[in-house]
Each structure stands twice: as structure tokens, then as C-alpha cells.
């Protein structure tokens, strides 16, 4: 679809975001690098973390935009609907079935792929039922998701206690987000899967534009609504599993990113929205981590600050009457 007057504006937006991300990434890699000594070691360490932050950000941002299009609502996010709690629960269930030693014996990559596979299946069944026909009663759907989230989290700690009341804390670590602990072994798998899912999302972009018109209009335009919904939910599941596996669950980050994306990119075209969301989210994480880790020396705060800001943003949307 040719939209000359808007597409130039969006071109500037995407270019600007890319440059901004590149600038922060360069700063991240090079800032305060010692003139000699362990330079290559430090660079490698920084590179791992940078890649992790970008993957986590981009996956979360894109997953949220995708999910909001499926749900037909600008407030629902995969995290609010309990996607990441489901993933954490899945991880614990795996421990339950195989035992701590059994899970430890699994190769990291295979275990991750297995989890993502099961997660995708479950998410499609569960949220496909909940949202398949375009969620008529949206507030109730939100509430259901929130409660499902609580249910998954409680089940998770329940299982955790049953598995091993003493080593409970180890299992429980999964349920707290930390951007400082990015698993380098998992990163290549996360990166690969995220790239695949993003390409898939871009291929769906035109169909997603139609999906954004609501079920009725979409069906009338000949879109295979159910199939696109399920495909999109599968992509969302993969894109949520990656950041959750890498850093843990982050509830409100996606909402913040999606809100900013729709505010900055004045378009409904997913070909623009999806990359914009990915770039915005990655830039926010890299810049935020740079600020907290290097400037303020307190790396752990970023996730707390994001939750706080995201929660306030949600309240703002609620009070402005934008949530319906």
C-alpha cells in the first residue's frame, strides 16, 4: 500500500530509531574501556549482554504489538494475560517431571526448544479459546488473564515447594526478572528463534493490518481469521518465551513499549509498527541498563523502574478512558 505522505515520516522514524539504538550500543561497548589489558574479554562480556538486551527488548516489543492486534485492544499484553507466568510454570513442571538432576542433564538448547514448543502449543489452546472470536467482553477477558497469571504463579510455587521444600529458593529465582543475569548459553538459541519469529511476523504484516480491523471486517475481506489468530498467538508465545527464559518475567514493559510505538508511529501498518516496536524496546533497555549500570552503578533497578513506570502508564491509560 503506497502512502507517500506518511511513509516518509515513518522512514525518518525508523531510521532515527535505528541510529539511536546504534549510538547507545556503541556507547555500551566502548564507554570506559580500559586502554589496555583485558579489552577483548570485557568486549566479549559486553557484547553478550548487549545482544541479550536487544533480543529481550525486540521480542517483548513485537510480541506485545502482535498480541494487541489479535486481542483488538491496546491494553492487553501477553504478560498481563499471564503468558510469561505460564512459561515459568512450564519450566517448573519440567523439573517436576524430570527431577532437578534430570533437567540439569538436558542440554540447554534442547531444553529451551522443548519448553518453547510446549509453551506455543499451550498458549494457542488457552488463549486461542479466550480470544479466538475476538473477545466480546474485553474487561472480563483481561480479568481472566490476570487471574490466570496469579493461578500460574501460585501453581508454580506450589510445585516448587512440593519438588523440594529446601531448595525452593533455587526454583523461585526464575520468577524474578533481572537484566544482569543473561544466560550466555541460551543466547544463540534465543537470538535464532527470535529472528525466525520476527521474519514470520513481518510476512504476516499485511494480514495483521486486516486483522486489526476486527473479526467481522477481516472475515468479510476474506481473511482466514482463525488461522491468522492462531499463527499470531504462536509467534507471540515464542517471542514471550525468549525474554522470559533469558531474564525472567517483566510485566509492564511491553505495555509501555506498545503505547510508545502507537504514539510515535502514527500508522496502523504492521510493516512499520513491528520494527518500530522492536527498535523502541531495544533502545529503552540498552539506554536504561547503560544509565543504571554505568552511571548509577545499580544494575538491578532497571526491572523495578520499568515495572513502576509501566504500571503508572497503565493507570494513566485507564483514567484517560483509553481502556475499553
Amino acid at each position: 500500500m503506497q502512502l507517500p505522505e506518511i511513509s516518509r515520516q515513518n522512514l525518518i522514524l525508523l531510521t532515527g530509531l535505528t541510529l539511536l539504538l546504534a549510538a547507545f550500543s556503541a556507547l555500551w561497548m566502548l564507554q570506559g574501556l580500559p586502554p589496555e589489558g583485558n579489552r577483548s574479554f570485557i568486549l566479549k562480556l559486553r557484547w553478550t549482554k548487549l545482544a541479550g538486551l536487544i533480543v529481550v527488548g525486540a521480542a517483548t516489543g513485537i510480541a506485545t504489538v502482535l498480541f494487541q492486534t489479535v486481542a483488538g485492544n491496546r491494553v492487553l499484553t501477553p504478560s498481563i494475560m499471564g503468558f510469561d507466568s505460564l512459561y515459568v510454570l512450564l519450566q517448573t513442571s519440567l523439573v517436576m517431571m524430570l527431577g532437578i538432576a534430570g533437567v540439569a542433564a538436558l542440554p540447554v538448547g534442547e531444553k529451551f526448544l522443548l519448553e518453547v514448543g510446549v509453551m506455543t502449543l499451550l498458549a494457542c489452546i488457552l488463549f486461542g479459546t479466550l480470544l479466538g472470536r475476538g473477545a466480546r467482553d474485553i474487561p472480563r477477558t483481561i480479568l481472566t488473564g490476570v487471574i490466570l497469571g496469579i493461578l500460574f504463579r501460585s501453581l508454580n510455587s506450589f510445585l516448587g515447594r512440593v519438588i523440594d521444600p529446601i531448595e525452593f529458593a533455587v526454583v523461585q529465582q526464575n520468577s524474578m526478572a533481572s537484566f544482569s543475569r543473561i544466560d550466555a548459553n541460551l543466547l544463540p538459541y534465543g537470538l535464532g528463534l527470535a529472528l525466525l519469529a520476527m521474519v514470520g511476523a513481518m510476512l504476516l504484516a499485511s494480514r495483521l493490518d486486516v486483522l486489526g480491523l476486527g473479526r467481522e471486517v477481516a472475515v468479510s475481506l476474506g481473511l482466514r481469521h482463525e488461522r491468522v489468530v492462531i499463527l499470531t498467538l504462536a509467534l507471540v508465545a515464542v517471542l514471550v518465551a525468549i525474554p522470559t527464559a533469558l531474564v525472567g518475567p517483566i510485566t509492564f514493559f511491553g505495555l509501555l513499549v506498545a503505547g510508545m510505538t502507537h504514539g510515535l508511529a502514527q500508522t496502523a501498518r504492521h510493516a512499520i509498527l513491528l520494527p518500530a516496536a522492536g527498535l523502541i524496546a531495544a533502545t529503552m533497555l540498552v539506554a536504561g541498563q547503560l544509565l543504571f549500570e554505568r552511571v548509577m552503578g545499580q544494575a538491578a533497578f532497571l526491572s523495578v523502574i520499568i515495572e513502576f513506570a509501566g504500571g503508572l502508564f497503565f493507570m494513566y491509560l485507564l483514567l484517560k478512558g483509553r481502556i475499553r
Binding site: M1, S206, V210, L213
Partner: peptide, 17 residues
């Protein structure tokens, strides 16, 4: 209610999809 923020011409364009 359509969630996507669309201009009228953009909406009409979807008829060609």
C-alpha cells in the same frame, strides 16, 4: 469499534485487500 487508528482513505483501501 476498530482499534487501529486509521484515516478514512486507509480504511477504504482495505476494501481492495
Amino acid at each position: 469499534h476498530i482499534v487501529s487508528r486509521l484515516r478514512l482513505r486507509e480504511l477504504v483501501r482495505f476494501g481492495r485487500w
